[in-house]
């Protein structure tokens, strides 16, 4: 965001000069607003207004049909007090680990290895590992449901390796379902993270490495002293994208588990949907949505603040 702001100032000066050269245009001050109007109208009516209304909804108890009653902050208190909702937000944090932290760890190792030794076929590899990013989450979910099925290929592979003891109903187990769903997230976002990091690492000038190598640094120290600081920007972007994706998880849970077994995989987005459109707890659903938004904005701000500090 800081970048955007500084760039904005520079452009203003440039445009300022242009305006000075055409004083005749000053009389038509409405023109920019006319260009902006259709976008503002559609965006305002179908996103901004409902967003503000969600804030309003969140202070009422309403079943979606009858009369509504003002309840103050009760719906927000429910987010903290209702065990199911607390769990939902807890699960979202577990998913952050699988969507963001784990892919970042894998991506860093993968990108570092691949940029060190210039192997052929990197372009082709990039095409493949990025592929899960463009496939509809529903397709991904349907695919992994088959992989995780009790008689599916994962259990088949385990039996083949003689690890029968490890086989389980991956999507029907109170302990294993959340990590199993999380790993689907890892499968989806590792490609994105790796491609970003490779792009960042190839931009690091080779001379930087020469210097530490003269000091007798090994590849590990080289990585921490040169590579890691140089790709701070890419790490920030990767974490922002993947953390937000983790917090907003909906399709994946809806299709693979429906929040179950029990409440073991329910997430905030799923609770918004369930409460608003299945249980008739519209105010509470709106409050969850608002809390989720604050969380998304907050985490994005924190990640970017840490990333900018270099």
């Amino acid at each position: 965001m800081a970048d955007v702001a500084t760039a904005g100032r520079g452009a203003a000066t440039r445009r300022g000069r242009g305006a000075a050269r055409h004083p005749g245009r000053l009389g038509r001050a409405w023109i920019p607003y006319a260009y902006l109007a259709p976008a503002l109208l559609l965006y305002g009516l179908f996103l901004l207004v409902p967003l503000v209304r969600a804030g309003q909804f969140s202070f009422f108890e309403w079943d979606g049909l009858g009369a509504s009653a003002f309840v103050g902050f009760d719906n927000y208190l429910a987010v903290v007090q209702d065990e199911r909702l607390r769990d939902a937000f807890g699960h979202a944090l577990v998913l952050v680990f699988f969507y963001a932290v784990l892919p970042l760890a894998i991506g860093l190792v993968l990108a570092a290895l691949l940029t060190r030794a210039k192997v052929r076929g990197i372009g082709f590899f990039r095409t493949i590992i990025f592929l899960p990013q463009v496939i509809a989450m529903v397709v991904v979910a349907v695919t992994w449901r088959q992989i995780y099925a009790p008689d599916g290929p994962l259990n088949g592979l385990l039996r083949l390796l003689g690890l029968d003891a490890l086989t389980t109903a991956w999507l029907g187990d109170y302990t294993w379902t959340l990590p199993a769903v999380g790993l689907i997230g890892t499968w989806v976002s590792t490609g994105l993270v790796t491609v970003l990091l490779i792009a960042g690492m190839t931009r690091v000038p080779g001379e930087l490495y020469e210097a530490v190598r003269l000091d007798g640094a090994g590849p590990v120290r080289e990585f921490f002293a040169i590579t890691l600081p140089a790709i701070r920007g890419e790490i920030t972007v990767a974490l922002t994208l993947t953390i937000v994706a983790a917090l907003k998880t909906f399709d994946l849970v809806y299709v693979t588990t429906g929040g179950g077994p029990g409440t073991s995989t329910t997430v905030p987005s799923y609770e918004v949907y369930r409460r608003a459109f299945e249980l008739g707890q519209v105010g509470e659903a709106a409050a969850i949505g608002i809390v989720l938004t604050i969380l998304v904005f907050g985490i994005t701000a924190v990640v970017n603040r840490i990333g900018d500090r270099s």
């Binding site: 904005g8 976008a39 409902p50 209304r53 519209v282 949505g289 938004t293 998304v296």
Partner: peptide
Amino acid sequence: FFFYLFLVGIMVPTEAFIVPLYFD
């Protein structure tokens, strides 16, 4: 101001505005 207003829309999760939007 308008630029930042549009920026908000990129970040806001669908879950935040879909409930009132449905009823409207």
